[in-house]
Design a protein around this nucleic acid. Structure first.
Lengths: 175, 175
DNA sequence: GGACTGTATTTCGGTAGCGAAATTTTGGCA
DNA sequence: TGCCAAAATTTCGCTACCGAAATACAGTCC
């Protein structure tokens, strides 16, 4: 699409603009910027998830599998299920399910911890690390492509504003 | 942790700062602002979803049920399943499932369209509208609370930056 | 007007997620 | 030592979601 000659500061409308506009007459006290921001974040998160799912499938992985291996690799290749629970924002039961299938595929090892027998050590195997590294590059690509339309300053601003919001959230939710 | 005496403009660190910091030595080419923004959006979206689920449960609804009624109400009380599919970012099969349970509970009616017999008209019933309105107030509260830590200008900036990103997304995804 | 392409919705089979309860272990404390 | 609350993980029952195929209808082309 070529540049428009009009020098207006208004960017073109995205899907969410239409969504918010439909709602304004119904809910007069709706703040368009709050609704707009929340809606866009939700849709973007959703989209990136889909792209990840589709991207890592070329390497025989699912999004959840990749994400789990990713967190594990980020922690040096070993972690407790409760670490994964926190990092991945999951219910405890879901972690068990994910580890089950990763173990079946030989990507992680589950060994009872020696120091505290309630705990379990999750260890990334060589096969797991290899699968992760292969898919790694694909995953960040869409994020870079989309966030790349912002300047460096804008990205810093975006991240900073979101940090403010998250601090408010974490202050109440205990972590 | 008490305040540091340094007068830097750095806000306190949120969870994501620690996450990104853990990753930097492992993936040197990671852009902290991209990773930070994406991570925060994902976590915020997740959090708001949980709060919605918990909030609307006081009115006997689930998050999905409320969201579906919400979209329906926003479209004047009637829509086609494919409209809901687009608005809710769902697979076609999922819409059927949602409507099934909403119909069982008497919140929507499914009547075959007279003009195009492939289509189905989804109509919000009085009971559906009542359930929606009761829960309505709760849902926006957490969004307002969290986004409320930003100034009006900041919220406009946030929403605007996200619009830019979404335009890049929608340009390729055809929707 | 009959075959053909495209669109709207549902059905089917399978997976992942959640909440709640159970299990095992720990660390304190009498 | 024996009891007990708290913590880490798993099991269980259930629901929602997805992809792919099926069904039913609409509009078009010859």
């Amino acid at each position: 699409m070529p540049e428009h000659p009009t020098p207006q500061p208004h960017p073109p409308r995205d899907w969410t603009d239409g969504h918010v506009e439909r709602w304004l007459p119904v809910l007069a006290d709706l703040d368009p910027d709050i609704e707009g921001a929340v809606t866009r974040m939700s849709r973007l998160t959703h989209h990136l998830g889909r792209v990840r799912e589709q991207g890592v499938s070329d390497y025989g992985l699912h999004k959840h599998e990749f994400d789990t291996l990713h967190v594990l690799a980020g922690r040096g290749g070993h972690a407790a299920p409760s670490d994964l629970r926190a990092d991945l924002n999951l219910a405890p039961a879901s972690v068990t399910g994910r580890l089950e299938s990763l173990e079946r595929r030989g990507f992680v090892l589950r060994t009872p911890s020696t120091e505290d027998r309630r705990k379990v050590d999750i260890v990334l195997t060589e096969a797991g690390r290899a699968a992760w590294q292969e898919a790694l590059d694909v995953v960040g690509r869409e994020e870079r492509r989309l966030l790349g339309v912002l300047s460096e300053d804008e990205r810093r601003t975006l991240s900073g504003l979101l940090r403010k919001v998250m601090l408010a959230q974490e202050a109440t939710a205990g972590g």
